[in-house]
Design a protein around this nucleic acid. Structure first.
Lengths: 207, 207
DNA sequence: CATTATATGTAAACAATGTCAACATTGCAT
DNA sequence: ATGCAATGTTGACATTGTTTACATATAATG
């Protein structure tokens, strides 16, 4: 009888295979679809067919597991955004628009994950685990800064501190995304109109 | 011996006096200072000297209690904002600035309360309890819309749909507040610079 | 191959918390 | 005064995160 009946490709090193990665992945899926406050270690482990305590062989606490999910979420997000920023076949303004739409769409399609990544959850603890500032979060921010510098060089926007400009742009879009997914915007129907107007205000205001 | 040894001014109607109001007020204070996820019914009732189950004589669940806190929070917030909007001794632009600063300061001084009011918490359930749309939340939003209409009439900004304009302005400031209190903004030190730049972008972009 | 050690998984138990049911007490109406 | 509704209390229960002691699989070592 085979030791492992689900896959013989790789030599699965331990009991479950790689429970740690499975925990992270499944936890991310649960949080994405059901929200952070409803995820349960018991439910999580039950889906993977292990006992509840198995988590503690890979993560010292539920909090640390979530921190891993956050890290994983950023990776996926960056994977989604990188091609947009690296695309040189479109103008700066077109890329600016594409970026904004991609960001907003991600928030709409993954509201729970978006709240986890850009909310306050475990904010203090994040820096302790790994270098989020330089590694994950800032990847998108730096790309935005680069885009703004490009726009400055082309004379599309005024030459001011691009970091301040990036913060302004990010705040505007993040605010829109947050209000939207949290149900505070009265007119969710004409979102397209609001988004266009916001972007126009930004582009005109940055001149 | 007196029935109530803490106050003889008012005829306290029932066992505790008015436990319902005290629960709301203390819960708000706890949430404001310690956050929503750390508040406990046991701790709350212990501070008021009652038993844990006493809550259920006034609220059907913890969630409903929090909804009451949210309502109370909006009342306090509106109490804070109303004079700024009603002030006629300053120009429109000055009031616009004062509004933005008051909003941002509130978020900074009461981050936990701010997250509760403008986050996703119990968003679906809010409309079921009372008419937040028309009563509480929108008070500030309507005031902002009125301010923008005033600015339109004075020719300071362009005459477009003031609701869309208000959403844009709110999103910008809310985004700044959120990123700030949730620790995502790299440069919290030069907040003044970012705020000013954001407001300038808005005013210029709305022309 | 046998043994040992390390890594991983499990079961049972505990504390904290929200909630409910049964009971007790207070205030008010009649 | 009596009865009733409102309010408060105690004990119990389910859920959940977590720990401890134990079990098992893999790797290392002789």
């Amino acid at each position: 009888m085979m030791k492992n009946n689900e896959s013989t490709k790789k030599t699965l090193p331990y009991h479950h295979g790689n429970l740690k990665e499975a925990l992270l992945q499944t936890a991310l899926e649960i949080i994405d679809s059901e929200g952070l406050d409803t995820i349960t270690l018991r439910d999580l482990t039950q889906r993977l067919g292990t006992s509840r305590s198995a988590v503690y062989r890979h993560f010292t606490s539920k909090e640390v597991l979530i921190l891993g999910v956050i890290e994983k979420g950023y990776e996926q997000l960056n994977l989604l955004f990188t091609p947009i920023f690296q695309d040189r076949t479109h103008t700066v303004v077109e890329r600016f628009d594409a970026m904004g739409r991609a960001y907003l769409n991600f928030a709409i399609e993954h509201p729970n994950l978006y709240r986890l990544l850009f909310g306050e959850m475990y904010r203090k603890e994040r820096e302790e685990i790994c270098d989020y500032k330089d590694e994950t979060l800032a990847t998108g921010l730096y790309a935005l800064i680069g885009l703004l510098i490009e726009a400055q060089e082309e004379g599309i926007i005024v030459c001011e501190n691009p970091i301040v400009q990036a913060a302004t742009v990010w705040a505007s879009i993040h605010g829109l995304a947050s209000l939207l997914i949290d149900g505070h915007l009265l007119m969710s129907d004409n979102l397209e109109e609001i988004y266009r107007y916001s972007q126009n205000v930004l582009l005109k205001g940055l001149c």
